[in-house]
Amino acid sequence: MFKRLMMVALLVIAPLSAATAADQTNPYKLMDEAAQKTFDRLKNEQPQIRANPDYLRTIVDQELLPYVQVKYAGALVLGQYYKSATPAQREAYFAAFREYLKQAYGQALAMYHGQTYQIAPEQPLGDKTIVPIRVTIIDPNGRPPVRLDFQWRKNSQTGNWQAYDMIAEGVSMITTKQNEWGTLLRTKGIDGLTAQLKSISQQKITLEEKK
């Protein structure tokens, strides 16, 4: 169930391209415009997507990853294993993690069937560096609404905000991946996880038929 919630949630996290980005210092504006741009692209490019579902990787690479804190999220997933990894191991892992996100997020976007969304009203940021933004996803086919909290983090150097995690039903996506990959990290280390991520990233994206 959580895996499905995570995939549905990713439908609204794909941010804007650099040329049309919203105010990078306001995570609420980023979330709002990102959702609108993403849904528009999914709707307008269905012919290309249906002809070649792996085209979704391109959308992810162009529109999402430049505005997601990939390395920060990847380091959180590694936890204690990050500090013990060599620079070469980290570089290989982050490259594999990025390719994994292209496949995983692309597969999530393949679930698009006309969903709509509501974003919580903007709250004062103050001096906060981590801000959760509640998004409610509404399914046109009558499924119950899904309420999610996207975690946005302020870059201490640039002042810009980027998304790095999502919490559904009190469970963090980062925590879920830590639990899912924990045994592999304990037995085969970061190299074993890197190899698995490379394998997963090679899987073809498949479209979910409308139910």
Results as ranks from 00 to 15, higher is better:
residue 52 N to E: 14
residue 117 Y to E: 05
residue 191 D to E: 09
residue 137 I to W: 15
residue 126 G to L: 11
residue 28 Y to D: 12
residue 2 F to T: 02
residue 111 M to P: 09
residue 63 E to S: 06
residue 129 T to I: 10
residue 94 F to W: 10
residue 186 R to E: 00
residue 39 F to Q: 00
residue 158 T to H: 11
residue 114 G to K: 05
residue 76 L to D: 01
residue 54 D to M: 13
residue 120 A to E: 06
residue 55 Y to H: 09
residue 104 A to M: 15
residue 113 H to W: 15
residue 160 N to E: 08
residue 41 R to E: 03
residue 22 A to G: 13
residue 184 L to P: 09
residue 134 R to Y: 01
residue 93 Y to S: 03
residue 124 P to R: 12
residue 161 W to P: 01
residue 96 A to M: 11
residue 141 N to I: 07
residue 40 D to I: 13
residue 139 D to P: 14
residue 155 N to A: 01
residue 175 T to D: 10
residue 48 Q to L: 13
residue 117 Y to Q: 07
residue 162 Q to A: 07
residue 29 K to H: 09
residue 164 Y to E: 00
residue 185 L to A: 12
residue 154 K to Y: 02
residue 211 K to N: 10
residue 75 A to F: 00
residue 142 G to F: 10
residue 42 L to K: 00
residue 23 D to S: 15
residue 122 E to M: 06
residue 197 L to Q: 11
residue 101 L to I: 15
residue 155 N to K: 06
residue 80 Q to P: 14
residue 143 R to D: 01
residue 184 L to D: 13
residue 7 M to Y: 10
residue 166 M to C: 15
residue 21 A to E: 08
residue 177 K to D: 15
residue 115 Q to N: 11
residue 44 N to T: 12
residue 199 S to N: 12
residue 89 Q to N: 05
residue 190 I to V: 11
residue 173 M to W: 02
residue 68 V to Q: 15
residue 13 I to C: 08
residue 27 P to R: 01
residue 9 A to I: 13
residue 177 K to E: 10
residue 39 F to L: 02
residue 84 S to Q: 13
residue 120 A to N: 12
residue 1 M to Q: 00
residue 22 A to C: 06
residue 144 P to R: 07
residue 58 T to V: 12
residue 153 R to P: 00
residue 11 L to K: 01
residue 169 E to H: 02
residue 60 V to W: 00
residue 24 Q to M: 12
residue 209 E to W: 08
residue 126 G to V: 07
residue 167 I to T: 14
residue 112 Y to W: 03
residue 53 P to Q: 12
residue 157 Q to E: 04
residue 110 A to H: 15
residue 88 A to S: 12
residue 176 T to P: 00
residue 120 A to Y: 09
residue 170 G to M: 03
residue 104 A to Q: 14
residue 167 I to K: 02
residue 61 D to C: 04
residue 126 G to F: 08
residue 150 F to K: 00
residue 13 I to E: 00
residue 60 V to Y: 03
residue 205 I to C: 15
residue 6 M to S: 01
residue 147 R to S: 03
residue 133 I to R: 02
residue 163 A to M: 13
residue 96 A to G: 13
residue 72 Y to M: 01
residue 48 Q to I: 04
residue 2 F to D: 00
residue 117 Y to S: 07
residue 144 P to V: 08
residue 101 L to S: 15
residue 107 Q to N: 15
residue 207 L to T: 15
residue 142 G to A: 10
residue 33 E to P: 06
residue 148 L to H: 01
residue 194 T to H: 08
residue 128 K to V: 09
residue 13 I to Q: 03
residue 14 A to E: 05
residue 190 I to T: 10
residue 10 L to I: 06
residue 204 K to V: 08
residue 138 I to Y: 11
residue 165 D to V: 01
residue 40 D to E: 11
residue 160 N to Y: 10
residue 37 K to M: 10
residue 196 Q to H: 13
residue 70 V to P: 15
residue 113 H to D: 05
residue 88 A to I: 10
residue 105 Y to Q: 02
residue 187 T to F: 07
residue 179 N to Q: 05
residue 188 K to D: 06
residue 95 A to R: 10
residue 7 M to F: 07
residue 172 S to I: 03
residue 17 S to D: 13
residue 30 L to Q: 08
residue 167 I to G: 07
residue 89 Q to M: 09
